[in-house]
């Protein structure tokens, strides 16, 4: 079968900047061919000037992430014909949210800067000894997903917060952060969580779920972010809008069984920033959209919800007692 694939081209030729354009290539495709095979074919027989990254061709090295019909995937792990049939077309572009160096090659320095920021190594509780420190299977499982990361950048390429805020720490580094915060041997958990709670940190994630959707190795970065947030609250790192927002939701559901918007705004933003919301609130009020505090009805059988909360608390205490023993 002969198909047309379009590849994004861009060559700054020393100018430092270039306007990408799509170049079409007709190629003969065979069943089982991957996107990377197709890119190789183009470079080998049609256009030797095409630039792209690749190494292992086995979804291990994480070099060949590109946008395939608009979504970030590993070129070596993606079937060409399956992908082509989805839209009866094929466009291959560099990863989004990254500066293009040439054609499909993007600048990964910001990616590594973010990874470095979370200090991707273990800060042990105790001094290194020659004795092996055994970690139980259950404890390994908690951070197992995060350990699978091959640093391909698909998650950062798909991240909606990073699209808007280039300083956002982004999912790859957050998944890596959980790898260490969630490690039982780690000694600097709270310090790490305080740093992660700063501006452009873990609370800035908009929960678009793209990171988990497009990770080719099932790292599930969003789950790592949720675990980091839960651990931060657990460790008392709560002096920020993100943690306050979660706490106010937890309280609201316990109290009335649902979200009490007025109370949540106040608890999340505090008195002064809530005052700043007044002009907006008045406009909302004109359209009957202002959530009214205190009169929000509670759900029926709220006592069931309270019992579930109590049961969860009880179980947490039991775990803590066990740990102390």
């Amino acid at each position: 079968m002969k198909i047309k694939i379009k590849i994004s081209r861009c060559d700054p030729m020393g100018k430092g900047w270039c306007e990408p354009f799509l170049q079409a290539y007709d190629i003969e495709v065979k069943e089982g061919m991957t996107i990377l095979d197709a890119i190789h074919l183009v470079k080998d027989v049609q256009d030797g000037t095409l630039a792209f990254r690749r190494s292992c061709r086995s979804a291990i090295c994480g070099s060949c992430a590109v946008n395939i019909n608009g979504f970030p995937k590993l070129a070596c792990k993606t079937q060409l014909i399956t992908e082509y049939r989805k839209k009866e077309s094929m466009v291959i572009e560099p990863l989004s949210n990254h500066r293009v160096i040439k054609d499909l090659v993007v600048d990964f320095n910001p990616f590594w800067d973010k990874i470095n920021k979370v200090e991707p190594w273990l800060n042990r509780k105790s001094a290194i000894s020659h004795q092996p420190s055994a970690v139980s299977k259950k404890d390994v499982l908690k951070i197992d997903n995060s350990s699978k990361c091959i640093m391909c950048g698909c998650c950062n390429g798909a991240c909606n917060t990073l699209e808007i805020d280039k300083h956002f720490i982004a999912p790859a580094a957050l998944a890596k952060a959980w790898r260490f915060v969630g490690d039982v041997r780690e000694g600097e958990k709270k310090k790490r969580l305080e740093k992660l709670s700063e501006a452009h940190g873990m609370w800035d994630c908009v929960r678009c779920v793209n990171c988990t959707q497009y990770c080719p190795k099932d790292v599930a970065p969003l789950q790592a972010i949720e675990r980091l947030r839960a651990e931060a609250i657990n460790q008392g790192v709560i002096d920020n809008h993100g943690a306050k927002h979660v706490k106010s939701m937890v309280d609201s559901v316990k109290r009335v069984g649902r979200l009490d918007e007025a109370a949540m705004t106040f608890k999340t933003l505090g008195f002064l920033r809530s005052l700043g919301m007044i002009p907006f609130g008045l406009k909302m009020e004109m359209h009957g959209k202002m959530p009214m505090p205190l009169i929000f009805p509670q759900i029926e059988k709220i006592e069931e919800v309270k019992k579930i909360y109590e049961e969860i608390e009880k179980r947490k205490e039991q775990v803590e007692v066990k740990v102390e023993k």
């Binding site: 947030r229 839960a230 979660v246 937890v250 909360y309």
Partner: peptide
């Protein structure tokens, strides 16, 4: 927001 607090809950 509750998953950011306690998954089991």
């Amino acid at each position: 927001l509750l998953t950011d607090y306690d998954y089991d809950l």
